[in-house]
Design a protein around this nucleic acid. Structure first.
Length: 588
RNA sequence: GGGGGCGUAGCUCAAUUGGUUAGAGUACUGGACUGUCGAUCCAGUGGUUGCGGGUUCGAGUCCCGUCGCCCUCGCCA
């Protein structure tokens, strides 16, 4: 060990001891006769004083030190003179009086320093990630991440789970997200796929009798990125046998309670609240609603048919909906110009035909550019339906169901943040359950699995699989934290007959099924226990627990929006020789 | 693939309606200074205004194209 202590460790009780510290030069204050160096490592900062007594050579060396040079300092710990203690530093009561200074490594002038006040542009941070990771907030997040993962592993170990690693090089299954492919050298023309999740392997583990499986699993999906989505991400993946959906949710409830207690000092009330998918869509327009605030969606479709305003009437008569939200007290906070922006937003981003709005005047009457299209009594009814009070701003979308959901969810999210309807530090955990089994694909005129094709319907829905697929609900559950999908899982179909029924409905015939998931279907015929599981997005959990607004800050080496690594410049070209070995040729 | 935002000194930013030699803070270099901690003071270096084209007497500013980063729609079973 080159050092006896870290830079965050020394206190008054160490006064008089001779110690050696190693670290980076955070700053260097030269006073001529003597100088001060703030020495930093990931544990903290300790002030080093280099006095003339250390000798000219040492003083000269100290004077030449610059930001991010790496040094080793030996000296004795001393109390700072009265009045010069620094309460901002944990080590601020003492300083290290240098007797021996050694430059371990010189740093080039860094493009930015870890302590600088204005955060540099993110691309620069990503390019010099080793500098960015020296920043205290990044270190704090990575430590949080490490501890959360440790807590998860401990929890599942205590509950008798077995941690099993599954292959990274697997087989492509064209369902779902786009695969990252890896060409095989040995099998010319064949490819491995990186796992989108260890889904099939963990089900196989259940058949194999490992009734409690867990893994911190890296997953890969070649889809476009978002603030909360990376092409390469980490899941806490688990699967259990001889359980039902309540058992999985209960297990995760316990985990969340522990994590919330340990890392946020929050006592969660268990069980976590559950709402159905249908209720979530009706009240909030989204399957992962932010439940930290109200501003729920209200359906006014029945009123639309009782008015002469064509935009409302016609969309409802065509099977659409008239739905709205009431932004309490927001009338004077949203100018016409800003409302025009909201209108553009729902039109452009969600394909809404328009946005209708009403302001509630001091006398309780509704004012709107379109108000003249309605009778006074109709407006009164609308106001009552929306619980209108003077000063409120009500926003309505009249359109196809899906468009009203997307638009009003978007508006609710945006207004909720802008109007500060919740404390950003507040955390809300809930479950959304009973998702539809299938979604109808209009373009391809067929049913698609909403989760994955191994999801079990509710027991009562088995008879309706073929006759009313649209009304079948799945044994599926999503964990939602503050409006983010933090995890999701299902109970699986464990017999091959029902599995085949679902495949049939999805248009996967026996030949295709055998080709794609034959090994799973085989396994299901050798005594598969009832089983199910869940996967949590660890990056997102860390993001939410850390109070961060993007997932890149929770990942040591994240990718940019175009899925590139700015530090290593991956992806990059490869040699012609490598391509030849893989029997690949780049087409022009 | 679509929409939007940003791109000026190493870094963070400014630059009036298109108008002088593109500025400030910080960093960096040199000097001064006995207790600082965002040290201070003095002096100095530092610019392909992302890149390419165009309009104009004149472009950081306007137009077209392009590259990069971010947000977002589509996409993400």
């Amino acid at each position: 060990m080159l050092r006896t202590h870290t830079c965050g460790e020394l206190r008054t009780e160490h006064i008089g001891q001779e110690v050696t510290l190693c670290g980076w030069v955070d700053s260097n204050r030269d006073h001529g006769r003597g100088l001060f160096i703030d020495l930093r490592d990931r544990y903290g900062i300790t002030q080093v004083m280099v006095a003339p007594a250390a000798g000219d050579e040492q003083l000269d060396l100290a004077r030449r030190l610059r930001s991010e040079d790496v040094v080793k300092v030996t000296g004795h710990v001393a109390a700072r003179p009265e009045g010069t203690a620094n309460p901002k530093l944990a080590t601020g009561a003492i300083e290290l009086r240098c007797t021996q200074l050694q430059l371990l490594n010189r740093s080039k002038t860094p493009p930015f320093t870890p302590g600088q006040q204005d955060l540099p542009a993110e691309d620069l941070r990503l390019k010099h990630r080793y500098l960015d990771l020296r920043r205290e907030p990044m270190q704090r997040t990575l430590v949080l991440r490490s501890r959360i993962i440790k807590a998860m592993r401990d929890y599942f170990e205590e509950h008798n789970f077995i941690d099993v690693e599954t292959p990274i090089l697997g087989r492509s299954t064209p369902e779902g997200a786009r695969d990252y492919l890896v060409p095989s050298r040995v099998h010319r023309g064949s490819f491995y796929a990186l796992p989108q999740s260890p889904q099939l392997y963990k089900q196989i583990m259940m058949v194999a009798g490992y009734d409690r499986y867990v893994q911190v699993a890296r997953c890969f999906r070649d889809e476009d990125l978002r603030a909360d989505r990376q092409p390469e991400f980490t899941q806490l993946d688990l699967e259990m046998s001889f359980i039902d959906a309540d058992d999985i949710m209960g297990m995760i409830d316990g985990l969340m309670a522990r994590l919330a207690k340990q890392f946020l000092d929050i006592e969660l009330k268990l069980p976590l609240p559950r709402i159905s998918y249908d209720e979530a869509m009706t009240r909030f327009g989204h399957d992962a609603p932010d439940l930290r605030f109200g501003m729920e969606i209200v359906d006014c479709s029945d009123l639309a048919t009782q008015c002469d305003f064509r935009a409302f009437r016609e969309s409802v008569e065509a099977g659409g909906k008239l739905r709205g939200i009431n932004a309490k007290g927001a009338a004077d906070k949203y100018s016409r110009r800003v409302i025009d922006e909201l209108t553009e937003y729902v039109k452009h981003d969600f394909g809404a035909k328009g946005l209708a709005w009403f302001r509630v005047e001091a006398d309780g009457k509704l004012w709107s550019p379109i108000a003249k299209n309605f009778s006074e009594s109709w407006l009164e009814t609308l106001g009552r339906r929306m619980s209108a009070e003077p000063g409120d701003l009500m926003l309505f979308v009249s359109d196809r169901w899906e468009i009203t959901c997307k638009s009003l969810h978007g508006l609710r999210k945006r207004l909720g943040a802008e109007l500060r309807l919740y404390d950003p530090k507040q955390m809300h955990f809930s479950w959304v359950v009973e998702f539809p089994m299938f979604e109808f694909d209009q373009e391809e005129n067929r049913w698609n699995a909403m989760h994955h094709p191994f999801t079990s319907p509710r027991d009562a829905d088995f008879p309706k699989l073929e006759t009313e697929p649209g009304s079948c609900r799945a044994k599926a559950y999503d964990l939602v934290i503050n409006g983010y999908e933090a995890g999701g899982g299902t109970i699986r179909i464990h017999d091959s007959v029902n599995q085949q029924r679902v495949f049939n409905l999805l248009g996967i015939d026996e030949v295709q099924a055998k080709e794609r998931f034959g090994f799973l279907l085989d396994a299901l015929q050798y005594g598969a226990p009832p089983h199910g599981g869940i996967a949590l997005g660890i990056d997102r959990v860390v993001m939410l627990f850390g109070g961060l607004d993007n997932i890149r800050d929770c990942i040591a080496f994240p990718k940019t929006q175009k899925a590139a690594d700015m530090m290593t410049e991956a992806p990059g070209p490869v040699d012609a020789k490598q391509l030849r070995e893989l029997s690949l040729r780049i087409s022009q």
